[in-house]
């Protein structure tokens, strides 16, 4: 039993999941159990916990893509803008504002929106892998341009749509569970399988630790980067679809605004070193749930939303500190000094 626990606790996703459960429990206790209340209406599950999963789905998807980007030692700060673009394209098509010939075909709209996201990711990938621009700078270009592009698609308007088929992306249910959850399971599942069953994971960690040596070992670093940024773009597009389906329209100014920090935070909580190297997608998913549940918790306590920003900022600094070698050394040397003093006296 103990052995099993030890083995389990060594998994990267272990502690994030535990923390998530603790947060849930805390909510449960504070709310006097209301928090865990599930109700079934029309065969659909409702409840606060379900909401966390539903609302956290965007972040989980982004975090899954972001994990790989961060594992290469890079970053993708354009995800929020890509979400805006994808939402703008999908909604404009469904609404008939652009490509009216499609008659608002939802499936085509979704496919084109995701393709747009993939294109954005590919563009980032080209800048990073081929032209070798630092990732922050490379993705910054799209961060600046993205919302502008989205606005140009919607002609500067906030678009509202009426399409039950499109609403389903966020509000739908399958087997009584919210549909976005299935999107997460599908995307993350495919990704986890891909990373686990192929040597993609090994290559990725290798590239994150030492890209030059990886190249010499025969890993095609450029191709890897290209694929990873493309996936990140594609995932961001899906997140953008969920968001726009949630608000039943496209708001280019606010869609995915500042969500890149949440995604990075989620990955950091999951234990991936932001400098690159070892990573775990399940841990990042748990990290995303933690971020979401913190948001929910804080809001439930009646604290203004602004404080969540402060809290997240503090949290990410603390996590980065805990990953910092220099900080650890400082702590240990401090302890050692204390010990020495104690011995000396």
């Amino acid at each position: 039993m103990k052995e099993k626990f030890n083995k389990l606790s060594q998994k990267k996703a272990f502690w994030p999941v535990v923390i998530f459960l603790v947060i849930l429990l805390f909510n449960g206790v504070v709310s006097g159990g209301d928090f865990f209340k599930l109700s079934i209406v029309d065969g659909h599950l409702y409840g606060r916990v379900i909401d966390i999963f539903r609302n956290g789905s965007k972040l989980m998807i982004l975090a899954a893509g972001m994990t790989m980007v961060l594992a290469t030692g890079g970053t993708d700060i354009s995800v929020g803008s890509v979400m805006a673009i994808s939402g703008a394209i999908a909604c404009s098509i469904v609404n008939g504002n652009i490509l009216p010939g499609l008659n608002g075909n939802v499936v085509v709209a979704i496919i084109l929106a995701i393709l747009a996201g993939i294109t954005c990711g590919f563009w980032n990938g080209i800048l990073v892998a081929k032209i070798k621009i630092q990732p922050i700078v490379a993705t910054m270009i799209l961060l600046v341009a993205g919302r502008g592009i989205a606005q140009l698609v919607t002609q500067g308007k906030i678009i509202t749509i009426t399409s039950d088929a499109y609403y389903f992306i966020n509000g739908g249910y399958i087997l009584g569970l919210p549909f976005p959850l299935f999107i997460v399971i599908f995307l993350a599942g495919v990704l986890i399988l891909f990373v686990g069953r192929t040597s993609f994971g090994l290559f990725l960690e290798s590239v994150g630790c030492n890209p030059k040596a990886s190249k010499f070992a025969g890993i095609q670093v450029d191709k890897m980067l290209l694929v990873i940024y493309t996936i990140s773009g594609g995932f961001a597009a899906v997140a953008g679809l969920i968001e726009s389906a949630g608000i039943k329209g496209a708001d280019c100014n606010n869609a995915g605004l500042n969500i890149e920090l949440d995604a990075i935070l989620a990955v950091a909580i999951g234990g991936t070193n932001l400098m690159g190297g070892r990573f775990s997608i399940p841990a990042s998913l748990a990290g995303a749930l933690i971020v979401q549940s913190i948001t929910t918790t804080v809001l439930a306590q009646g604290v203004p939303a602004a404080y969540i920003r402060v809290l997240k900022a503090v949290l990410i600094i603390v996590i980065c500190l805990s990953q910092s070698k220099e900080f650890k050394e400082m702590l240990t040397s401090h302890k050692a000094a204390k010990k020495r003093k104690a011995v000396g006296e």
Partner: peptide, 11 residues
């Protein structure tokens, strides 16, 4: 603490 400037200033 050798933290990434991008992350620190984002925070």
């Amino acid at each position: 603490f050798n933290m990434q400037p991008f992350i620190v200033t984002l925070a």
